[in-house]
Simulated assay, not measured.
Amino acid sequence: MKPNNLLLLLLGLLALSCSSGKNLSFDSSKENLHLYLLMGQSNMAGRGKVQAIDTLTHPRVFMLDKNENWVLAKDPMHFDKPGAGTGLGLTFGKIMANEESNIKIGLIPTAVGGSSINAWFADSIHRQTNTYPYDDMIRRAKKAMESGTLKGIIWHQGESDSNSKNSLNTYPQKFEAMLDSLKSDLGISSIPIVIGEIGYFFYPKAKFAKDMNGVIRQIANSNDCIGLVSAEGLNHKGDETHFDSDSYHALGTRYASEMLEIQSNCTSIFNY
């Protein structure tokens, strides 16, 4: 069942916790802390206005902060650029936590605004932020996996690769190569992945943006362990590039719904 926005609001309010402790530790089995990697560029990092609901924590939803400490998750979750704000990750995490009362959710923010697919390979620098998105992601994932078990990846990226026909044509191969490297570096054989369309409102700003969504759908259709989230009906915050806060909430709901479906259909997922 797909939660609607009203249910999302209720989930956030009912799950409110006043605690915001640093350096949290987990005494239970690693199997009880479900980890999710948040990867991509600015629309995964989040650029929405932080609203009251985005500061409400859930007692079983955590994030690995900039200093690699576990803290209760709230927006802004990412720290890639000063403009980081509300994104889709917190909504996603709350819904996943409410599916099972005996588990905790550990979100691993790794998205980098402005990064193309080319930045998501080992030793590849992203000049805008002077960071190494892939290497940083692997380091943070390994740190998180000391406490929990990786259960999925959510990916939102493509705007930076929408201006070049060559980028469009090579995107599927690069995406597959990135995942192969990730699985090898993290010691996993398969993982459920949910990827999202870029905003339809972005089409006038990039020559091949609409075609990029076609490529994203193609990737999702190529593997039973990859799910697709539509951007239909979602709005931008006024810049025709980034979703507004309400749309990020909707995206988080869609990502969670799709992840749950993929996890139920994707067999032999975890083989360490």
Rank of each mutant, 00 (worst) to 15 (best):
residue 125 I to T: 03
residue 108 I to N: 07
residue 254 R to H: 02
residue 47 R to K: 13
residue 84 A to W: 00
residue 46 G to I: 03
residue 123 D to Q: 11
residue 131 T to G: 13
residue 99 E to I: 06
residue 200 Y to A: 05
residue 166 N to Y: 14
residue 215 V to F: 05
residue 205 K to W: 09
residue 263 Q to D: 00
residue 209 A to H: 04
residue 59 P to M: 09
residue 259 M to H: 01
residue 147 S to Q: 07
residue 120 W to Y: 12
residue 90 L to G: 03
residue 229 V to K: 03
residue 152 G to M: 11
residue 135 D to M: 12
residue 7 L to A: 15
residue 53 I to P: 00
residue 209 A to G: 05
residue 239 D to N: 12
residue 36 Y to W: 05
residue 45 A to W: 02
residue 251 L to R: 05
residue 190 S to D: 15
residue 145 M to I: 11
residue 61 V to Q: 05
residue 171 Y to Q: 08
residue 156 H to K: 11
residue 3 P to F: 09
residue 179 L to Y: 13
residue 253 T to E: 14
residue 8 L to Q: 12
residue 102 N to F: 10
residue 9 L to G: 08
residue 206 A to L: 10
residue 220 A to L: 13
residue 87 G to T: 08
residue 19 S to T: 07
residue 64 L to S: 13
residue 234 L to C: 11
residue 179 L to P: 08
residue 99 E to L: 08
residue 49 K to I: 04
residue 161 D to V: 09
residue 45 A to M: 04
residue 183 K to Y: 11
residue 41 Q to I: 05
residue 99 E to Y: 09
residue 131 T to P: 14
residue 26 F to N: 06
residue 205 K to H: 14
residue 2 K to S: 10
residue 167 S to N: 15
residue 52 A to Y: 13
residue 215 V to K: 06
residue 23 N to M: 03
residue 84 A to E: 04
residue 269 I to A: 01
residue 244 D to R: 05
residue 227 G to V: 01
residue 202 F to E: 09
residue 13 L to A: 07
residue 41 Q to S: 12
residue 4 N to Y: 03
residue 82 P to H: 10
residue 24 L to P: 12
residue 180 D to T: 15
residue 192 P to Y: 04
residue 12 G to N: 06
residue 94 K to Y: 10
residue 218 Q to W: 07
residue 151 K to D: 13
residue 65 D to L: 10
residue 130 N to C: 02
residue 12 G to C: 01
residue 20 S to A: 06
residue 5 N to A: 00
residue 164 S to V: 04
residue 207 K to L: 15
residue 204 P to C: 13
residue 21 G to F: 02
residue 65 D to S: 10
residue 234 L to W: 12
residue 105 I to N: 04
residue 112 V to L: 07
residue 121 F to P: 01
residue 197 E to P: 08
residue 177 A to Y: 00
residue 247 S to W: 07
residue 124 S to M: 07
residue 174 K to G: 01
residue 2 K to T: 12
residue 156 H to C: 08
residue 50 V to F: 01
residue 170 T to Q: 12
residue 249 H to L: 01
residue 258 E to G: 00
residue 113 G to K: 06
residue 62 F to S: 07
residue 50 V to S: 01
residue 5 N to F: 02
residue 75 D to A: 11
residue 61 V to L: 03
residue 189 S to Q: 12
residue 151 K to G: 11
residue 22 K to C: 02
residue 135 D to S: 15
residue 54 D to M: 06
residue 43 N to F: 10
residue 159 E to H: 15
residue 260 L to V: 07
residue 215 V to N: 04
residue 66 K to P: 02
residue 247 S to M: 06
residue 206 A to K: 14
residue 149 T to F: 09
residue 238 G to D: 10
residue 235 N to T: 08
residue 27 D to E: 14
residue 25 S to Y: 05
residue 72 L to G: 08
residue 151 K to W: 09
